[in-house]
Simulated scan of single mutants.
Amino acid sequence: MNDLLRKGMKINHLRLAAALMADGKLTDAAHTLGIAQPAASRLASEIEAIIDAPFYRREGRGIALTAEGRALAIRADRILNEIGDAGREIDELRRGLTGTVALGAVTGPAIDLVLPVVRHARIDMPDAQIEIEVATSDHLRDMVLDRRLDFAIARLPDDASASQFDYMPIGIEPMSIIARRDHPLLRAKTPIGIERLLGYDWVMPPSGAILRQTVERSLRDLGHAPPARVLNTSSFLLTLAAVGQSNAIAPIASAVAQIFGADGQIKTLETTMNLAVDEFGILTRAGAHLTPTADRVRDLVNDMIKRNKTA
């Protein structure tokens, strides 16, 4: 890097490299930077002179970075984001624990961990703004890598991309099967056997969702086929509505079942199935340095985890 700086590499060169990697067109990259296309072309020529290699090649109606260009662009994007984070951190240090923290969580931990943490944060950091994203692990992981989230409570990928994250395991996510309060199964002998459960419609997320995979794997391990009649939906509200207005049953996070069962409209079925989704934990970008406010919120999450374990 010192050699590139000595040769004249400047912030505008890094900004163009990052913009070209994101936009794929010189005109779009120029627009992103707020400069004319000739100025962008001139910066690209300067980059090629500095790295002593082709920066990009024309491909169809756009451009494709060369191997050397992409190597520069990846690091340029990282450098620019670090500079942005530094500005955000300096601003927070100047104003105290204020600013915005963006965190994500899968459904169960969002209820068990994030909501209590937000209540504590309101007292601990009254001027901080906390944004919460509740989604599936794959979506949350993408948001962490794209820097749209400071950190997430989600599952670590089981492939090579796991190296992109720093990870602190928390535990498994217990699941329950719910039904409406006057469902026929609630009059059955407990625990309810799988054969009786499979006699009803099920409401589950689409194929490939981890909750559905967990249910189908558990049934398969016990020698049963998946439910024959399934309403597929990723909408939690539609799941609750379908369960509340029919004889359908649904697997959901136990923490959620407890919350929505508090008014007695939804009941948790006592069954012979022992459901739990794979381990989840706290995910941050590998090597990321959180701002003081985000770091404090993560500390509050860790405190809540320890409190729950000793309760």
Rank of each mutant, 00 (worst) to 15 (best):
D3A: 12
H13W: 02
A18H: 04
A18N: 10
D23Y: 07
G24M: 05
K25L: 09
T27K: 14
A29C: 06
A29S: 15
A30I: 00
S41G: 03
S41Y: 12
S41I: 01
S45D: 14
I47R: 02
E48Q: 15
I50S: 13
A53R: 06
P54V: 07
F55Q: 01
R57F: 03
I63V: 11
A64Q: 08
E68C: 04
G69R: 11
A71D: 13
L72T: 01
A73G: 09
I74F: 11
R75T: 11
E82H: 10
E82S: 10
I83V: 09
G84T: 02
D91T: 07
V101C: 11
G104A: 08
V106N: 07
V106F: 11
T107K: 09
P109F: 01
P116S: 14
R119Y: 04
H120L: 12
P126M: 12
I132C: 08
V134Q: 12
S137D: 09
D138V: 09
D138E: 13
H139L: 06
R141G: 10
V144F: 05
V144T: 00
R147E: 10
L149V: 00
F151K: 01
A152Y: 11
L156F: 11
P157N: 11
P157S: 14
P157I: 09
D158A: 14
Q164I: 00
P169I: 06
I172W: 11
M175R: 07
I178M: 03
R181P: 02
A188P: 00
K189N: 15
K189V: 09
L198G: 09
L198T: 00
V203N: 01
V203G: 02
Q213P: 00
S218D: 13
L219H: 11
R220Y: 05
D221P: 00
L222I: 04
G223R: 02
G223V: 01
F236H: 07
T239M: 15
S246D: 06
A250P: 00
P251L: 04
V256M: 15
V256A: 15
A257N: 06
Q258S: 15
Q258A: 15
Q265V: 12
I266D: 05
K267C: 12
T268F: 03
T271A: 11
D278E: 14
D278L: 10
E279K: 08
F280M: 10
G281K: 05
G281T: 01
L283P: 05
R285N: 03
A288R: 10
P292L: 03
R296A: 09
V301C: 12
K306F: 12
K306C: 04
R307Y: 12
N308K: 15
K309N: 15
